[in-house]
Computed example of a mutant assay.
Amino acid sequence: MDIAELGHTLQRDAVAVVFVNVLLQQVGLPVPAVPTLLLAGSLAALPGQLGKVLAAAVLASVLADLLWYALGRRFGYRVLAGLCKLSINPASCVSQTEARFIRWGLSSLVVAKFVPGFSTVAPPIAGALRMSLGGFVVAAAVGAALWAGLALGAGWVLRDTVQAAILALDRHAGRAALVAVLLAGAWLGWKLWQKHRFRRAGDLPHITPAELIDALAGEPRPLVLDLRGATLIAETGPIVGARVAEHDALDHAVGDWPRHQPIVTLCACPEDAGAIQAARQLMEQGYTSVRPLRGGYAAWLAALGERP
């Protein structure tokens, strides 16, 4: 569907189009909703019609959030780990996002729609952490209303500009499509370069679970930093002898530890992303013996003969 067809469709049934578009985007599909909201706002004839479109957008967003909330409540950390694995950049580990969510509480749901990536991750985290359903729905609805309302309002106020832009894009559809493809290719290329750069940065000595078990039985005993998110720790319990740490508060976690003593970082992230990040950060701070655990928490459980 081109821009002109989308405009005609929105004029006929803006409520249904916006509802479906927002629902698909918030479920996680790569379907941008902001351009549709801008266009719908510019085409709204009366404030009452704008209100109906806003209500449809909020309802669609809350329904998608409730789906993710239910999945998080039912499957817990497995949903979050799955979302993390789908990320192009494994360094954006869900445990770091989860820590910020716990710190900000309900207010994080209000701003989630404005933070790329966080919009999809926040609802299942809320479910996994057993946030009250009533509070979740209110916060998700307020956030959706702000997000969709700003886009619709901008389209309403700048209707002449939006319409002129649509006409220009329609006249130069081929060029516009080429620019869009080039921009998408540049974005994808940048993300893949980030992934490549992360893998190069991750080329540092690791410690295997068997080696860690032996080291814990000897001297000097290493400090194990557990970088898993609070959801997984709550589900499975703490690791005996380990110290729970957050990426944003590593200084606090290792403040009393000698810089020459061994440290092992452990996470439950794809490609040991969080553990590698923490290890590099600590080495930059002058800690001389820091190694990430190869395979993370799952490998640790396997070495102990337990199921993840």
Rank of each mutant, 00 (worst) to 15 (best):
G202Y: 12
D214F: 12
V27Q: 11
L301V: 05
R199N: 03
A14V: 08
A253L: 07
L83N: 03
Q277K: 10
T231C: 09
V224R: 01
G202W: 02
L80G: 00
L301R: 15
K52T: 08
Y69K: 08
K191M: 03
V254A: 05
R307C: 06
G51I: 01
L129Y: 03
L37H: 03
G255F: 07
N21R: 09
L6C: 03
A64G: 10
S132Q: 07
S119W: 00
A16Q: 07
P30A: 13
V62Q: 06
V138A: 13
A14W: 07
L212C: 12
L223K: 04
T231M: 02
S87D: 01
K85W: 12
A278T: 02
I3S: 06
H196V: 12
A234D: 05
L63R: 14
A33F: 04
G305T: 07
L83Q: 08
V31A: 09
G135V: 06
D160K: 10
D160T: 07
W104F: 14
R294G: 13
I239Q: 10
Q194F: 01
R78C: 03
W104Q: 04
I276Q: 05
L39W: 02
L178K: 15
G189H: 08
D203L: 13
A60S: 00
L227M: 14
L169W: 08
L158A: 12
A278N: 11
A215M: 10
Y77Q: 11
A299Q: 02
L223S: 02
L304A: 10
Q25Y: 07
T208N: 13
A168G: 15
G105H: 04
A91K: 08
H260G: 11
E98N: 11
A64W: 13
G255S: 15
A33N: 07
W257V: 12
V290F: 05
A230W: 14
Q285F: 01
D13T: 02
S92Y: 00
A126V: 02
L223E: 04
M131C: 01
G51T: 02
P90K: 00
H252L: 14
G241H: 15
I166P: 01
L67V: 13
M131I: 10
A60F: 06
A234F: 09
L83T: 01
V17Y: 05
I166C: 15
V115I: 13
M283R: 14
V162S: 01
A151S: 05
L150R: 11
G155N: 04
A215R: 14
L232W: 08
A45S: 10
V15I: 10
W68A: 12
W104P: 06
G76T: 15
G127P: 00
S42W: 05
L59W: 04
A302S: 13
